[in-house]
């Protein structure tokens, strides 16, 4: 069933379209930056954006910062929202279940496909933005004196190996965050027969969480908001790495994954399939 889900994923034009759009945004930003040579002022704009003009090796990190707040969760919500509700809407869900595929297997396969989609999307964003960054802004040899190296947020120079490791850490962390969010969307997907409805409900959660995060009065519930630690991937680029929020974020996302995957399972296993 997992193999089937992956074959479906690979054969869907929509999947590749959304990944293509995710890659296109950073590429567009890179082209505009290189043409205008106008970096955002320090402290404004996306993370790393002011630094990439001097060093293309940092562009993957800047690209992640660009897609993380809205576009990546949007793609994840659409994909995960479609997971069960989409199959219900086309009617293929009932045929899978009478094939028979057990409901748990369907759900696990959907979760695995979701994880693969997230990894695939982020990897594509990183790879394309690395190529674009190196082509447009150079390898950082002039800026840092070493090809493929970059200056960390704390000013310490990171060698190519170190930079790659930290980028991998950041990617892994973002994957976990997206998986946590995706499991919320998956839960809504088991509630509804409308893929769009499920995706919108997940986005509503995202927006509500983001709004609450900016509110000082909501301080007491902030540690539990799904988006609270999303931006902590940037802590991989501090020196020494600030693990505190990364750890909290991983624990929180693990809880969200367990909670909402469990809720999806509880709901889906007992559900009457009337679509």
């Amino acid at each position: 069933m997992i193999a089937v889900e992956l074959r479906k994923l690979a054969s869907r034009p929509r999947v590749w379209l959304s990944i293509g759009l995710l890659c296109a945004l950073p590429a567009l930003v890179a082209v505009l930056l290189s043409v205008s040579n106008l970096a955002p002022p320090p402290g404004q704009g996306g993370a790393f954006l002011s630094a990439v003009l001097r060093n293309g090796a940092l562009f993957p990190a800047a690209a992640l910062a660009l897609v993380l707040p809205v576009f990546l969760p949007l793609a994840v919500a659409v994909f995960a929202g479609d997971a069960v509700a989409g199959e219900a809407a086309t009617g293929t869900l009932r045929y899978l279940l009478v094939r028979p595929v057990s409901r748990s297997r369907v759900l696990v396969a959907k979760m695995v496909a979701l994880a693969v989609f997230i990894v695939l999307a982020i990897t594509m964003v990183v790879v394309t933005s690395l190529v674009v960054g190196l082509a447009l802004f150079g390898t950082g040899a002039e800026a840092v004196g070493q090809s493929g190296a970059a200056t960390s947020l704390s000013g310490v120079t990171l060698g190519p190996g170190e930079l790659a490791l930290r980028l991998l850490g950041a990617i892994g962390y973002i994957v976990v965050c997206m998986l946590g969010f995706g499991s919320i969307a998956l839960f809504f997907s088991t509630l509804s027969d409308s893929a769009i409805g499920a995706a919108l409900a997940a986005l509503a959660v995202l927006i509500a969480s983001s709004v609450l995060q900016t509110l000082q009065a909501a301080d007491s519930i902030k540690p539990y908001l799904p988006t609270n630690y999303w931006l902590s991937w940037i802590d991989f680029f501090r020196d020494p790495i600030l693990w505190r929020n990364i750890d909290s974020g991983l624990v929180l996302q693990a809880c969200y994954i367990a909670l909402f995957f469990g809720a999806s399972w509880a709901n889906f296993a007992a559900k009457d399939i009337t679509s």
């Binding site: 002022p41 320090p42 402290g43 993370a47 790393f48 002011s50 001097r54 200056t151 704390s154 000013g155």
Partner: peptide
């Protein structure tokens, strides 16, 4: 999006501002 670090050493104080590089 960055950080501003202040070091105190025997040679005085140093401030690293990432935004301003």
């Amino acid at each position: 999006v960055g950080e501003r670090d202040t070091y105190r050493t025997a040679d005085g104080e140093f401030v690293w501002d990432y935004g301003a590089d």
